[in-house]
């Protein structure tokens, strides 16, 4: 996955993310969610995945329960909360939308691992240097801030500034670390902009060195992905795989239309997994020969 050509990898994530955002069908969302989670597990390791699931699943449950608080439509009433019905339909809709949100979350996590800052600048550097810089900065913002926060926190602890008292004191110490972090973030963004300008970033005629070579595998899989995307997108937009939540949940029809939209999406979702699995298998195979 990581040695795929940036353009192919970007196309893959772009198409999967766009298609996931366009559907509310539970089967399609479940497929997207599980393949994203699996890919994330393969790329980041099982331990990291379990850690992230430990907080993403409660978030998912919370989002699921949030919808019926605001929406009261539906025929299957579970109970009444303060005189307002809590319906099965609203819960199902909440579950589907939280599934969509979290599958996007995991797809973006994989995106962040596969498409590094370098690759982003390579992809957008020639089209729009500004966009490339803004994209790479904003995508790496949170991990970067997190790393810096831990650093500041450690330094504060070592200085002995840290509150030793109860929970409130500790919280206050964290807040002071946070304010240091904010100051640092402002300063570093100004510094980064200046240093990029000093290097002549974005000036016309400037060339960039990149190591990415387009292999036959990249071209073949790129064309395949484009084809799958171009088939699925109009099918989803014209409602081949729709699911209605209100006023009653419709049953899932395993019709020709459903499979027509579902099969290409399935292939798209399985594509990175197969690719990664194939690479691992090859690696195992050749190392066992040594």
């Amino acid at each position: 996955m990581t040695n795929l050509h940036p353009l192919t990898a970007f196309g893959l994530f772009f198409s999967v993310i766009v298609l996931t955002m366009l559907t509310m069908h539970p089967v399609l969302l479940l497929t997207s969610y599980f393949s994203a989670v699996l890919l994330c597990g393969v790329l980041r390791g099982a331990r990291h995945l379990l850690k992230s699931l430990a907080y993403s699943i409660p978030v998912m449950l919370m989002l699921t329960l949030l919808n019926p608080i605001f929406v009261h439509r539906g025929t299957h009433i579970l109970f009444f909360l303060n005189g307002n019905p809590v319906t099965l339909e609203a819960v199902a809709y909440g579950a589907s939308s939280s599934l969509m949100l979290l599958s996007l979350f995991y797809w973006f996590q994989c995106f962040g691992i596969v498409i590094t800052e370098e690759k982003l600048t390579y992809l957008f550097g020639r089209v729009s240097p500004r966009l490339a810089l803004v994209l790479s900065m904003s995508l790496s913002l949170l991990p970067c801030l997190r790393r810096k926060f831990l650093e500041i926190d450690d330094a504060q602890r070592a200085l002995g500034v840290y509150g030793k008292g109860g929970y409130v004191d500790r919280l206050r110490a964290k807040l002071s670390s946070l304010s240091i972090l904010l100051t640092w973030a402002l300063e570093s963004s100004v510094e980064r902009a200046r240093s990029m300008r000093a290097r002549g970033y974005g000036l016309p005629g400037r060339t960039a060195y990149s190591l990415y070579r387009r292999t036959r595998r990249d071209v073949v899989s790129g064309v395949l992905l484009l084809l799958l995307f171009c088939v699925t997108l109009p099918l989803l937009l014209s409602g081949w795989a729709t699911f209605s939540y209100y006023p009653t949940l419709c049953s899932i029809t395993w019709s020709f239309h459903f499979w027509g939209a579902y099969a290409p999406l399935c292939m798209l979702c399985a594509f990175p997994l197969l690719l990664e699995g194939g690479e691992r298998f090859k690696w195992r195979y050749w190392t066992s020969k040594i």
Binding site: I77, L78, F79, F80, L81, N82, G83
Partner: peptide, 11 residues
Amino acid sequence: SGVEIQSVDEY
């Protein structure tokens, strides 16, 4: 205390 849960029949 602000939450009141009623069954369908109660409501």
